[in-house]
Nucleic acid binder design. Structure first.
Length: 809
RNA sequence: GCGGAUAUGGCGGAAUUGGCAGACGCGCUAGACUUAGGAUCUAGUGGGAGACCGUGGGGGUUCAAGUCCCUUUAUCCGCACCA
């Protein structure tokens, strides 16, 4: 078979027959299968793309044969940092390099032979897409879900530019090696925290991997407790959040995040130098280090005290970097006796340690971090921790010093980027009118081509006068645009809504249509997106629902993560390790079906694993065997033999067993076992081929036809070619998926394992349906078993139907 | 550090979710066909002569554990500006 020729042949047929095009008329039978779109990189498709898209396309083809109207779109997440960095390095404009990369990728994606509906293609960097990304921003702004506040960025003082976390290695700028500091800028945020509770609750109803749901749950990080107000000696008030109000009498100090505004305000003259030094030090430290529990806790007394509202005690205020300003209130109470961090901190700085919880099982060690019985807490002694948590807050609620509160670890989503290659933020800043949203009729705010993106201290767009200078839409006076662009996660937070209506020039999507086609029935992509992209998309869906555009709550009903294909050395593929395996040579030599089939067979789909060349050859062998059998069968004349004897029954069992298993495995993305079942069916067909005497040729040919249909989703070009040679009419993907005949799977007798005292002894044949009495009879009739059991008393007989018998003597 | 996962023959991986560990394939061994084989076909293949032993290590629950519990080690992913 000339692989290259048949690939071209069938791809042309599919295009002509519009096999991949979604027909909206059949929306009632829709199946929306979405793969995470790709970032257009310079190096064609890598194995990761193949692994995501190839097997998933087989799943889609399987669904099509099952009678669904499938929709499988593809597009490009085309904005982002790498193109801009590439431009800084080479001078090639991000738009030019991105467009070229997209062309290359489109070509290789098409060669893959996947059923992508290219009519629905989207590219997030095109005006007709980012116009609607900007629309989304404005809608969120109108709804009060977009707001501005100060937030720190990584700042390289020598390059005078904002750095992504990725560009900071060990606290230094990856370009020039200078120490990177935090710098505050006013930036745009989306209020995802407003949906924290719903995002958490919504997880329950989703058909997602449990681990992903768990990760999102922990990321959202709900904790219930109280917010307690403390008053500094200056009279300034601040709040701390705690889940352990039962330990309030044990507070011996409080901590403010170094970034907390009160730190600057309250620091005494004497402590000023030390505190400023500490704040500077903190600005050089990343959050992972700050939160590390193994790192030594540091802090500095700010020379000012605060009053504990429950007992009026004055306690020192520290600034310490293990408290983050972005979490909770940016302030915590320190209870050394009942918290490990606080215990270490108090020991280091010589702070008092007062025990206020007693263990119930005589544990006297400190810190004691479990619940127990309250002590040293006048008015609450003897209560359990649980009772005291409520009672103490309740008492403070009366005087307005506390409230019950649920806190989330989830933070609002920072969407401003001080970069060029992104969707401009559609906002105008006017001295008179303040922040003015760009009128919808003026969208898109076009990203200008001619900009200087070499870093020199300003956002690239800020230097472009033609872009920046505008008239205020409200007062008509001089104003300027927002110089920042949107995080690319904003683009990808709604793309699944655009696909089904990709060419709509009047609105981002037609709500009526979208409400029929969405939610996505199956979403397939990497697990690395568990907490960010997947959470952002859920948030945007809920927000658009509340704004009135959508009538569903969750964008992705069912989710699958593909694993990672590693290099042959078992390490993650990377240029620096030199272990990258490119798919192209394999496609050239063996064809796309073989590569796809190997990816399906050689790995557990959700696990991935190391690449291995030998497996590829095994697949070639498998397809060759099928092809030889096809040739042989096509040369075999039909006969009138309709007998169904033992051999035919075995074959029918194999055929129906394969249908049942492959059907189930494809549905569950268990591609490796699906292919294994296909191989078993081929083995059964080969076996039937070798029997002597008159064969039931009709049955033989039909069984083979079933094999080809089951194989078709996994080796589409190959299967079409064989199907055609067998006289199949039209594309095999328009044929109906085989249906299992359960009656062929019913066996008269089954082999059952027999254990004595849980040790394997022998195997016996048993009728499928037996009573315990019959089992006993058969056991004693068995020669081997009866000798072993002679003179022993059977205490217990455990029968697992059709599997195992355990005789306890 | 925190959060999440993974660990099964020489290798990739199966195991109806507590019931015969190693499906299927690679590799290997022997044989057949062949001038030839890196083609094809047939048979065998966890270890051990054996009783038995075997699912990263150690403990436990159970008639029964790869699967459940405790503990430990190694590796991988994410940690909010890579996408």
């Amino acid at each position: 078979m000339d692989i290259k020729k048949i690939e071209k042949k069938w791809q042309a047929v599919w295009e002509k027959e519009k096999l991949a095009n979604f027909n909206q008329k059949n929306v009632d039978k829709k199946y929306y299968c979405l793969e995470m779109f790709s970032y257009p990189s310079a190096a064609k498709l890598h194995l990761g793309h193949w692994y995501n898209y190839g097997p998933t396309d087989s799943f889609v083809r399987y669904k099509k044969m099952k009678g669904f109207e499938v929709f499988q779109p593809m597009g490009f997440d085309a904005f982002g940092l790498p193109a801009e960095n590439y431009a800084i390095k080479t001078g090639i404009h991000p738009k030019d390099s991105t467009e070229q990369n997209i062309l290359n990728m489109e070509q290789t994606l098409k060669e893959m032979g996947a059923m992508f509906d290219w009519n629905a293609e989207i590219k997030t960097c095109n005006e007709d897409y980012y116009k609607w990304t900007q629309w989304l921003f404005l809608k969120l702004y109108e709804k009060g879900l977009a707001y501005r506040k100060e937030a720190p960025v990584n700042w390289c003082p020598s390059c005078k530019t904002v750095l992504a976390n990725e560009q900071v290695t060990n606290g230094e700028c990856e370009r020039c090696g200078s120490v990177v500091v935090k710098k505050d800028l006013t930036q745009w945020f989306f209020k995802i925290t407003e949906y924290a509770e719903e995002l958490l609750q919504g997880l329950n109803g989703l058909d997602w991997p449990e681990k992903t749901k768990l990760m999102q749950k922990n990321w959202i990080g709900k904790s219930t407790g109280g917010e307690i107000e403390l008053t500094a000696e200056s009279g300034d008030k601040f709040k701390v959040f705690t889940t352990r109000a039962d330990t309030l009498f044990g507070v011996s100090y409080v901590v403010l995040a170094p970034e907390h505004p009160l730190v600057k305000k309250l620091t005494s003259a004497k402590q000023k130098k030390a505190v400023e030094e500490y704040i500077l030090q903190t600005s050089k430290t990343n959050e992972i280090d700050r939160l590390s529990s193994s790192r030594e806790k540091t802090g500095v007394y700010i020379g000012h005290n605060a009053i504990n509202p429950i007992n009026g005690k004055s306690v020192p205020i520290y600034a310490a970097d293990y408290v983050l300003y972005s979490y909770g209130t940016g302030a915590v109470m320190g209870v050394p006796s009942h918290d490990e961090r606080d215990f270490a901190f108090a020991n280091k700085y010589g702070l008092p340690i007062t025990r206020v919880i007693k263990g119930t099982n005589g544990n006297d060690d400190l810190p004691f971090v479990e619940d127990g019985i309250i002590m040293n807490s006048p008015g609450f002694d003897g209560m359990t921790s649980e009772e005291a948590r409520k009672a103490i807050i309740n008492q403070l609620v009366k005087s307005g010093k506390a409230e019950h509160k649920t806190n989330y670890r989830l933070r609002d989503w920072l969407v401003s980027r001080q970069r060029y290659w992104g969707a401009p933020i559609p906002v105008i800043h006017c001295d008179k009118c303040g922040v003015v949203p760009v009128p919808y009729s003026d969208l898109p705010v076009k990203l200008p081509y001619d900009v200087e993106f070499t870093p020199d201290g300003e956002s690239p767009l800020a230097k472009h006068k033609g872009f920046m200078n505008v008239k205020c839409p409200v007062c008509g006076g001089d104003a300027h645009r927002d110089p920042d662009t949107l995080d690319t996660f904003v683009c990808s937070s709604w793309y699944y809504l655009r696909y089904p209506d990709a060419h709509n020039s009047k609105e981002p999507f037609n709500p009526e249509l979208i409400n029929k086609i969405l939610p996505v029935d199956k979403y397939v992509g990497g697990a690395e997106h568990a907490c960010m992209h997947l959470l952002y998309a859920r948030f945007i869906t809920k927000a658009l629902r509340d704004i009135g555009y959508l009538n569903f709550d969750e964008p992705f009903k069912s989710l699958v993560h593909q694993g990672t294909i590693l290099g042959p050395d078992g390490m993650k593929m990377s240029k620096s390790k030199g272990n990258i395996v490119a798919p192209d040579p394999y496609v050239q030599e063996y064809g796309s079906d073989v590569l796809r089939l190997y990816l399906m067979f050689g790995f557990s789909y959700t696990e991935g694993g190391p690449w291995n060349d030998d497996g590829v050859k095994a697949i070639t062998k498998f397809l060759d065997r099928i092809e030889r059998l096809a040739i042989k069968l096509n040369a075999t004349p039909n006969n009138k033999n309709n007998t169904v004897g033992k051999n035919e029954k075995d074959l029918l069992y194999a055929v129906n067993y394969a249908i049942k298993c492959v059907d189930k495995d494809m549905e569950e993305f268990a591609f490796n076992t699906a292919v294994a079942r296909l191989m078993e069916l081929l083995n059964a067909l080969s076996k039937y081929d070798t029997i002597d005497g008159d064969k039931n040729v009709n049955l033989f040919k039909n069984s083979f036809k079933t094999l080809i249909q089951l194989l078709a989703p996994c080796a589409p070009h190959f299967a079409e070619e064989i199907w055609e040679s067998l006289g199949g009419k039209g594309s095999i993907f328009n044929s109906k998926y085989p249906v299992c005949d359960e009656s062929a799977l019913v066996l008269d007798e089954v082999e059952v394992a027999v254990q004595i005292n849980s040790k394997m002894r022998t195997k016996i044949m048993l009728p499928s349906q037996v009573t315990e009495e019959q089992v006993k009879e058969i056991i004693f009739a068995d020669e081997k078993l009866s000798t072993e059991l002679a003179g022993k008393e059977i205490k217990k007989l455990i029968i697992v139907p059709k599997r195992l018998i355990n005789i306890i003597v």
